[in-house]
Amino acid sequence: MRVKRLTKTQLDIIARQTLEKTAEAGLQNARKNLPYIKKTILDLTPEAGPGVTDAAIIVSAGPSLHRKQPTRAILTSKFKGAVVAVDGSLGYCLRNGLVPDYVVTVDPHATRIIRWFGDTKLAHREADDYFQRQDLDPALNREEAARNQELIELVNRHGRSIKVIISTSVSEEIALRCLEAGMELYWWNPLYDDYDKPKSYSQQAYKLTKAPCMVTGGNCGTSAWVFAHAILHSKQTALLGMDLSYPPGTSIQNTQYYKEMVELFGDRAEEAFIRIYNPYLKQTWFTDPTYYWYRQSLLELARQADCSTYNCTEGGILFGKGIKFIPLKDFLNKFS
């Protein structure tokens, strides 16, 4: 058995499954977040209107972020556009002296997402080996307590300079942690499903919170790209760390869905990953079905948006119509 690229039907199954997995949880979190919802992403519009932020850099948390170390190039380039980090790359950015203008968070997971902001309750959590295995922020793989404390201090030090683009779907703990760190919160709902259906999750979330619903692409990185496009009106958007895949030679143990893949495919799990040859890199990277769904979704969105998207990840599998695959230095030379 070797899983090939997925068909539209198969991608739809993942989309439906994601709705089932996240919508109810997201809506429950939205109810708990109500007391903290004071401003929405639409309140950002005056300061981030057309022409103000013509270019943006999205710092996603794929493995190339740590392989290519792009922060120095950004800091020395005097890039004037917005820097939008995803929650998973916040620690990397702060450790390397790059304070993002915005950080986006969306995943409703009850205990993991808080770690990207420094978890003040880590000592009381149940054991979870995810952070020892994950590749989004390898700094957290070891000495978890010490690195967590370092992150708490970094977020507390820089929080006042960072606006959180916070989805109503996230755990209430994220809102409290961000407020504790002095961050400004700008809320939004994920566009869960068809808003024209009266009982849709999108309608329910909107009626409950009065926050606008934004397209997500299924993950935080794509949500950040949508935010840059639709709210900041960025016309030139660079993507960093948007691998949506794993470099050749990565142990499957270090992939995002390792446990699920082993549960499903047993000792043949390795065969269930999808191999994609990247002609720009002349390398074959591999991805899991969910990341492949993210890839196809972002390609579809990029084709529909009236902005230019530059994949400056210098790794991964995100290439195709609507995406310009170029080195970061070329983007910075052009738009700094």
């Binding site: 994601t18 994920p190 934004m214 299924g218 993950n219 869905y257 993210y294 529909q304």
Partner: peptide, 19 residues
Amino acid sequence: LRKLGGSIAFVMKSKTFVW
């Protein structure tokens, strides 16, 4: 595939990025 959901639901309708 039913067991491999993503981080958050996603749907796109008639080029509407923000509703």
